[in-house]
Design a protein around this nucleic acid. Sequence first.
DNA 1: TTCAGGATGTACT
DNA 2: GTACATCCTGAAC
Length: 212
Amino acid sequence: MAKLTGDFFAQDTVTVARALLGCYLVRKVQDKTLAVRITETEAYRGPVDKACHAYGGRRTRRTEPLFAPPGFSYVYLIYGMYHCLNLVTEPKEIPCAVLLRGGAVRLGTDMVSRLRFGVPYAGLTLVRRRNLLNGPGKLCCGLAITREDNFLDLTRSDELYVVSSLADIGLESEPDVAPEAIHTGKRIGIDYAEEAVDFPWWFWIDCEHAIR
DNA sequence: TTCAGGATGTACT
DNA sequence: GTACATCCTGAAC
């Protein structure tokens, strides 16, 4: 089982955010395995980034996971209702992470559909199929990720981890992401972040069920 | 198709 | 008390 390692997550945050596109987030829930191709990410770099919860080294009980070793999870509640999953990057004590903003299901479609909408995939309208996992709150909902999953070591966990190929979980692999297929833009929902609103740290790939 | 408004809980001031 | 790395619904076009 080739989980992505601490060395991978220890790289520069923007590098990791781009490299995670096309990788697979694997989730075990109720004895079932779910796998989602990562199609949308954002980089957050605490030391220089006013949009990062740990900007300037701001260290509280909530932001503590951002200071953890590379490969840990940082899950927080947003707007009172939704969770967002981040993967901690760069060496320990440097508070940086990649937010997973969207994905496309590759394994466990019916379970994901039930977690999101309470009905199997076949019962979904086209709009709901299109909107299955195309947002950070939706991704967590569809994979049953909550604050229970905060501060986990994803390089060791068997409940939640990342692999670079479907072959790593016994499925047929699909083509790698071509560098020219990666799109770049300004991050979303951080209008308060002054100069950081212009940092081009939003990345996505065109992919089935990943329409924006 | 886009748009406004409301839901909702926690962290931090 | 205020802000928040969001999502859904329903109305207008």
